[in-house]
Amino acid sequence: MAILYDDKYHLHLGYYEDNCDYESIAFKRQSEDVWDVFFDFKGYGINNITLENELTLQPYGTRIFSIDNKEVDYDIGVQQFKRLLFINKII
């Protein structure tokens, strides 16, 4: 079953410290209170560190994590994005 997203609800999450400029985008699922966050590894010239069968949404990239909540908090989303970049030695 394909996941459908509500195109009225999306949020850009960025990391702009230490001369870096990385951005991901979160989309709200239509049928549930979940936000899926996508990152375009190829667009940044980075090897994709996600599972091979992970969901990819063109042109936004590959899903890197999800946030289970009706509303997404920008600061929490950015912290999770920054953590993923750090753990995977991107920053």
Rank of each mutant, 00 (worst) to 15 (best):
N88D: 14
Y9H: 05
S31K: 13
E52A: 07
A26P: 03
V72L: 04
F65V: 14
Y5R: 10
L55V: 00
R29Y: 06
K42D: 03
S66K: 15
T50R: 01
D6I: 05
N19G: 01
I67N: 04
Y60Q: 06
Q80K: 14
I91V: 09
L84V: 02
V37F: 10
R83A: 15
D40M: 08
L85R: 06
N47F: 07
V34G: 00
Y9C: 03
K8P: 08
L51K: 01
A2S: 15
D73T: 12
E54Q: 13
I91G: 05
S31P: 06
D21T: 14
V34I: 13
F86V: 14
L11P: 06
I64R: 00
I67P: 03
D75A: 14
N53P: 04
I3C: 12
A26N: 04
K8V: 11
I91Y: 06
D18R: 10
K8T: 12
L55R: 00
I67T: 07
L55T: 04
L85P: 02
P59K: 15
D18K: 10
R63A: 11
F81T: 06
F65S: 10
N69Y: 15
E54P: 10
F27S: 02
D18G: 06
I90S: 12
D36Y: 05
G61V: 10
S66C: 13
E17L: 08
E71C: 08
F86K: 14
Y22T: 15
I46F: 00
T50W: 01
Y22S: 15
Q79A: 02
D33T: 11
K82E: 12
D7F: 14
L57C: 09
N88Y: 12
T50A: 00
L51N: 01
V37G: 06
Y74P: 08
E17K: 08
E32C: 09
E71W: 12
D73L: 11
F27K: 05
D75H: 14
D36F: 06
A26L: 06
G43T: 03
V37A: 08
T50I: 00
K28Y: 10
K42M: 02
L13F: 07
L11H: 11
G77L: 04
G14F: 13
R83D: 12
E23D: 09
I64E: 01
H12W: 07
I90Y: 13
Q30L: 09
Q30I: 08
D7Q: 14
N19V: 04
I49F: 00
T50F: 02
Y16N: 13
I49Y: 00
V78Y: 00
V37Q: 09
R29G: 05
M1D: 11
K89Y: 08
D36E: 05
D7G: 11
Q80D: 11
R63T: 12
D75P: 10
V72K: 01
V37D: 06
H12C: 05
F86W: 15
N88H: 13
S24F: 03
Y5I: 10
V34Y: 07
L13R: 07
A2T: 15
Q80L: 12
T56A: 03
Y44K: 02
Y44H: 02
K82T: 13
G43H: 02
I76L: 04
D21S: 14
I64C: 00
L85T: 06
Q79E: 04
N19L: 04
I67S: 07
T50C: 01
I87R: 12
I87A: 11
D40W: 07
Y15L: 11
